[in-house]
Design a binder for these strands. Structure first.
Length: 735
DNA sequence: ATTCAAGTACGGCTTCGTCT
DNA sequence: AGACGAAGCCGTACTTGAAT
C-alpha cells in the first residue's frame, strides 16, 4: 500500500493550525513555503502612520517627499482617494459585516493577485497590502511606500471583483507615487529583490525571511544592511531576553535602519543567493529509470518517487521500497504519476503519457535519458502553457521604456555569435553545432561562479575557441546580430553616461552571504551570519561564540526544540514564559503570537490575517465575479518607467496664469510630463498626446486616473480644470 | 540563436515513531 | 523526556528538447 506522507497529518496531530494546510491540497497554486511569506506581507509596519480602518491620506496637507524636499511638485491625491470610490461606499457598507470565511477568501485572493503581480513585474516594488476587518468599511488595499503616508483604497464589496478593482486602483496609485517623487536609490525593494532576500536570509534563519516579507515598505539595502551588520550583534546580546521582545525589537530596528537608503545590485545579490552547489554534475549512468516520465528511484531514500506538476508547482510522492518492495513501489509510483496526470491533465497535457514509455534497451546515461521524452506531447503542452501564461518579463520589459529596455537587453547580449544570456540560471551560455552534425552543444558559465563580466568573457572565449579549433561548424550568421549591435552601441553610450552619474550607493556589492544554516548545535547558535572568512566584516559578530555563555546558548537551543514551542502561546505581553528560542527556530505559530503581542495594531492585524487564511482558506476560490490578472479589463497598468521623455510636448503656456502638470502615460508605457494652463482645453492634451506618440488623435482615447475607474476624457472642449485632470495621470489607450 | 519548461537527481528540513 | 533514525516533502541545479 502506498504511503501518503504529508505534513498535514503531523500538523493536525500537533494541533498546529498554522501548519494544517498541507502542501498537497491541490488547489493552492503556491507551495507552502512560497505561500507563507506573502501572507505576512499584509501587515507591514513601515508606513509609520497609525492605521485606521478607513484611513485615507489627508490631502489638504502637502505630502512630504521621500527625498525630504517639499512642494517642488505638489500633486494632490486622486479624487478616489480623497472622496472614496464611486457609489457611496460609506453608506453602502456601514452595516455590512464580513464573515471570517469571506475574509479568508479575500485575503487568499489578494495574495494570489499580489503574487501574480510580482511575477509579471519582478523589477518593480509592489508595496501593496490588504487590510482586513470584520466590517466592509474596514476592508482596503493599501499602498505602502517608504517615507509616504499609507494610502487606502477601500473595497466596495466583499467580492473578488471588488478586490480586483481595489488592487488595480492601489497599483495605479502606487505607480503615481513612484513617478512623482521616487528617486531610484530610495525605491522600496522590488519583488525580485524581496525574493532574493528571503532566499538569502532563509539560509540564516528562515523566519527572518518571513519577517522581511511582513515589512513591505522596507528597502532592499536597509534590510540587507541590518541583517548583515546588526543582527549578528543583536543575536549575541540576546541571552536572557524574551524572544518576543527581541522580535519586536527586530522589526523596530528594521524600520529604523530603513532610513539608510543605499542601492544594492540585484545582480550581485542574486549571485550571492545562488551558490554553486555542484560545479560538475555527477555523471553516473542511471540505473533506476522507471521508463515513465516523472517516476524515478531515489537512492538516498530508498524509494521510488512520482513527481508531477500542479498549477506550476512541483509535487512529489515517495513510495518506500522498504515498505512495499522494489517492484511494487515502482508500480505504485507509476500508477500515482498516471493518476496525477489524468487529474491535472489540463495543466500539463493528457497526451504526455502517450509514448512516455522509454525504450529500456537504451543506455540510460545522463546524456541520453532525456531523449526518452515524447516530443509531441511535450511540445503541445508547452505550447498551451505558453499561450496561457502571462507575458511575464517580456511584457514588463516592453512597458518600461525603450531606453531602459535597450539598456537591459544590451547588457545581456554578446557581440559574439552563439553566446547568450540565460536569465533562468543567471549564466552566460556558449552554444555551437559540432562538426559531426550532432545536436547543438552548450556550455554554461554561471554568474554566481565567475561574476557577470567574467562569465560573459569565458562564454565568448569558449565559443571562439570552438570556432578556432574547428569543433564548431559555421551555420551562417543570424539576423539578430544586427539588432544586438545596435543595442550594444546604444548601451555603450548609456553606460558611459552612467559612469559619470552613478551615486555612491551604486558601488559594487560587497555582499558575502554564504548560505549557512542555523545548526541545532549549541556552538552554532551564535551568529550564523558570521563568515568563516575574516574578510567578511559585516558578518563578523561583535561577540564571538567563545565570549558568550555556552550554557545560555544551550538554553536557547533547548528552548527552541522543545519548551520553545509552547513559549509562543502566551498572552503576548512580553513576559518570559519559558525557554529561549533563537530566531531561526521560531515557528509560524510563534511568529503569529509575537505579531499578536506587537503594540502596533497593524501587526496584530497581520497575525489575524494569517490565522484566517490558515483557518478559512478555501479549497477552491469562490466563484463570485471572476476577476483575474489575465483579463485585459482588469489588468493592472504596466509599470511605467521613471524616466520621462526628453522632449517637451507641452503647448506654449502663459506663465502668468495658473498652470498644472499632467503625467501622460502613452500606450507604449512611456511617460511624458506636460505642463498646461489650467484653463486650456482637453483638446490641447489630445494634441500633445498625439505629438508625443506620433499617432493621430482619432486613433486613441485619453483616460483620467484622477478617479477610479479611469474616466474617459471625451469632451475635448472642456477645460482641464473642468475635466478634473489637474496634476494627475492621464493614460492613452488606442482605439 | 535564444528562451523556457519538463524531467531527473539530490540535499536539507520537518515530522513522526521507536528506543533508552 | 530526550535521542535518534526513517520517511516524506520541498527547493534547486542541471540537462535537454521544443518553441519562439
Amino acid at each position: 500500500m502506498e504511503r501518503l506522507h504529508t505534513s498535514e497529518g503531523g500538523a493536525k496531530r500537533h494541533g498546529d493550525p498554522a501548519d494544517s494546510r498541507g502542501a498537497d491540497d491541490g488547489d493552492d497554486p503556491l507551495p507552502v513555503r512560497q505561500r507563507r511569506a506573502p501572507q505576512l506581507r499584509d501587515g507591514g509596519v513601515g508606513g509609520r502612520v497609525p492605521l485606521h480602518p478607513t484611513a485615507r491620506r489627508d490631502t489638504n496637507r502637502p505630502r512630504p517627499r521621500r527625498d525630504g524636499r517639499f512642494d517642488r511638485n505638489p500633486t494632490p491625491a486622486p479624487s478616489w482617494l480623497r472622496e472614496g470610490p464611486p457609489g457611496g461606499l460609506q453608506e453602502h457598507c456601514t452595516a455590512t459585516r464580513v464573515s471570517p470565511v469571506q475574509r479568508g477568501h479575500l485575503i487568499l485572493h489578494f495574495y494570489q493577485q499580489l503574487e501574480a503581480l510580482g511575477r509579471a513585474h519582478p523589477d518593480t516594488p509592489l508595496c501593496l497590502r490588504f487590510r482586513s476587518g470584520c466590517a466592509l468599511t474596514q476592508l482596503a488595499v493599501e499602498v505602502v511606500l517608504p517615507g509616504t503616508p499609507v494610502q487606502s483604497v477601500p473595497l466596495s464589496a466583499a467580492t473578488r471583483e471588488a478586490m480586483g478593482a481595489a488592487i488595480d486602483a492601489a497599483w495605479a496609485c502606487r505607480q503615481q507615487e513612484m513617478d512623482i517623487d521616487g528617486t531610484e536609490d530610495q525605491q522600496p525593494m522590488t519583488h525580485a529583490q524581496r525574493i532574493v532576500l528571503c532566499r538569502l536570509y532563509s539560509q540564516v534563519g528562515h523566519n527572518i525571511g518571513a519577517m522581511l516579507a511582513a515589512v513591505p515598505s522596507l528597502s532592499f539595502a536597509s534590510v540587507d544592511s541590518f541583517v548583515r551588520r546588526e543582527l549578528p550583534a543583536m543575536v549575541g546580546r540576546r541571552d536572557g531576553e524574551d524572544i518576543k521582545e527581541a522580535a519586536s525589537r527586530f522589526i523596530r530596528q528594521l524600520q529604523k535602519t530603513n532610513q539608510q537608503n543605499t542601492r544594492l545590485g540585484y545582480e550581485a545579490a542574486m549571485a550571492a543567493a545562488t551558490p554553486h552547489k555542484r560545479a560538475v554534475m555527477e555523471q553516473k549512468p542511471c540505473e533506476h529509470q522507471s521508463g515513465v516520465r516523472g517516476v524515478y528511484f531515489d537512492k538516498a531514500h530508498n524509494a521510488w518517487i512520482a513527481n508531477w506538476s500542479e498549477g506550476g508547482t512541483k509535487k512529489t510522492k515517495d513510495f518506500s521500497v522498504k515498505e512495499l518492495g522494489y517492484e511494487p513501489a515502482k508500480q505504485a509510483a507509476i500508477a500515482h504519476r498516471r493518476a496525477m496526470e489524468e487529474r491535472h491533465s489540463t495543466l500539463f497535457g493528457s497526451d504526455r503519457q502517450e509514448g512516455g514509455q522509454c525504450d529500456k534497451s537504451v543506455n540510460r546515461s545522463p546524456s541520453l535519458k532525456h531523449r526518452c521524452r515524447d516530443p509531441s506531447a511535450s511540445s503541445s503542452a508547452s505550447a498551451v502553457e505558453r499561450r496561457q501564461r502571462p507575458k511575464g518579463s517580456k511584457t514588463a520589459e516592453a512597458t518600461k521604456g525603450k531606453t531602459a529596455a535597450i539598456r537591459r537587453r544590451a547588457e545581456h547580449q554578446s557581440k559574439v555569435v552563439g553566446v547568450s544570456w540565460d536569465g533562468k540560471f543567471r549564466a552566460w551560455t556558449a552554444s555551437w553545432y559540432p562538426k559531426d552534425g550532432t545536436r547543438q552543444k552548450k556550455k554554461h558559465f554561471k554568474v554566481g561562479e565567475h561574476g557577470f563580466d567574467k562569465a560573459k568573457a569565458l562564454a565568448e572565449q569558449h565559443r571562439l575557441e570552438m570556432e578556432r579549433t574547428g569543433q564548431a561548424v559555421d551555420r551562417g550568421r543570424v539576423k539578430r546580430q544586427k539588432g544586438h549591435r545596435l543595442a550594444s552601441a546604444i548601451f555603450e553610450r548609456l553606460k558611459a553616461a552612467d559612469d559619470e552619474q552613478l551615486p555612491s550607493g551604486n558601488e559594487p556589492l560587497d555582499i558575502d552571504v554564504t548560505p549557512q544554516r542555523m545548526s541545532r548545535d549549541a556552538a552554532d547558535v551564535v551568529p550564523q551570519t558570521q563568515s568563516p572568512s575574516p574578510a567578511n566584516g559585516p558578518h563578523t559578530p561583535d561577540v564571538t561564540p567563545d565570549a558568550r555563555d555556552p550554557a545560555a546558548a544551550r538554553r536557547m537551543v533547548d528552548g527552541a526544540t522543545h519548551g520553545g514551542r509552547d513559549a509562543g502561546h502566551g498572552d503576548g505581553n512580553g513576559e518570559r514564559e519559558s525557554g529561549m528560542i533563537p530566531f531561526d527556530e521560531l515557528t509560524k505559530v510563534q511568529l503569529v503570537e509575537l505579531l499578536k503581542a506587537h503594540p502596533s495594531p497593524d501587526m496584530r492585524q497581520v497575525a489575524e490575517n494569517i490565522m484566517l487564511v490558515e483557518k478559512y482558506a478555501p479549497q477552491q476560490l469562490f466563484t463570485g465575479g471572476g476577476h483575474t490578472l489575465s483579463e485585459p479589463s482588469h489588468a493592472p497598468p504596466p509599470p511605467a518607467p521613471n524616466t520621462a521623455k526628453d522632449h517637451d510636448y507641452s503647448p506654449p503656456i502663459n506663465t502668468d496664469k495658473p498652470t498644472t502638470k499632467v503625467t501622460l502615460r502613452l500606450h507604449t508605457g512611456e511617460q511624458v510630463k506636460l505642463t498646461f494652463n489650467s484653463a486650456m482645453a482637453v483638446k490641447e492634451l489630445y494634441a500633445a498626446a498625439s505629438k508625443a506618440s506620433n499617432i493621430g488623435v482619432a486613433s486613441f482615447r485619453l483616460f483620467s486616473s484622477a478617479a477610479f475607474p479611469p474616466k474617459p476624457l471625451d469632451d475635448q472642449a472642456q477645460s482641464l480644470e473642468e475635466a478634473g485632470v489637474m496634476e494627475c495621470l492621464v493614460t492613452q489607450k488606442l482605439t
